[in-house]
Amino acid sequence: MAVQQQIDQVGAVPLGKPKLGKRARREELEFYLFISLWVIGFLAFDAGPIVASLLISFTNWTALSPPEFVAMANYQRMIGDPLFYTALRNSIYFGVGSVGLGLIVSFLLALLLNQNVFGMSVFRTIFYLPSVVSGIAVAILWIMILHQDFGLINSVLSWFGIQGPGWLVQPAWAMPALILMSLWGAGGSMVIYLAGLQSVPQHLYEAAAIDGAGTWQKFWTVTIPMMSPVIFYNLIVGFIASIQGFVLVLIMTNGGPANATLVYGLYLYRLAFQFFQMGYASALAWVLLMVIMLITATQFYFARYWVYYEGDLRK
């Protein structure tokens, strides 16, 4: 009661939603207006199928005959399905490999292209160009680059007396080949890193320099901490995309040889649209969602130890 009186005496505004001014209200309206397209699209086209797929995952629906409720049978089937584990393992292998390698390469490229050199915008454009080339063209190019006898990679290896492998035709090398190929899209992440690098305040570098920090120390103590939210964003988005992706795999190897590149998305696609096991495919889709959520949650958990947001206080 005493506290309330004190508040009244100083004329403080009660806690709760702050009263918005005209300009702020307009901004709020614009916010809802802009997101409304996505929300309407989601409700009209995505929400229904998402809910339906959850229900279908508890049935044996084949798309050809009426579904029958099978309770958890589809989820139990996964436990004994060796291809489920193969596909999951391959997807995680591809995700870790492609995101890890892509993160390092695109970050290094961004550092390189953040230099103050004449004509840098041209170089930036050149490095970004591969990201806008269509997937099919990329597949063509990489099938040539990875060719066992005439490919660019094996030709370069031969200069050093190394006989390159059959990248896309030998089970042990097919997945590394696809991971290598995924670097082609590094330009997309590179642009985000570049934007992040350019927003690192210069005064931090100046302060570090006054403290006697060299290039390497400035990189570790200023650049990396300030870029950690961007790295984290690319890690999350890249991993989710890579674990879901399968189009280039379908084109280049179709899961072969010997299921070495059978990724989760491709397995799911085959079950749904070649074997018409919609119930089992839907169950797989929901398990994939759970796996992605688990991995993402883990990434968020560990982010507290290495991601720094401006204004945060380190404990």
Binding site: G166, V169, Q170, P171, G255, G256, P257, A258, N259, L262, R270, Q274, F275
Partner: peptide, 17 residues
């Protein structure tokens, strides 16, 4: 049929390789 051939094909890939 489709399940048979898709189960057998990847194993035979190892012979081809």
């Amino acid at each position: 049929g489709p399940q048979v051939t898709q189960a057998a094909g990847p194993i035979w890939d190892l012979v081809v390789a």
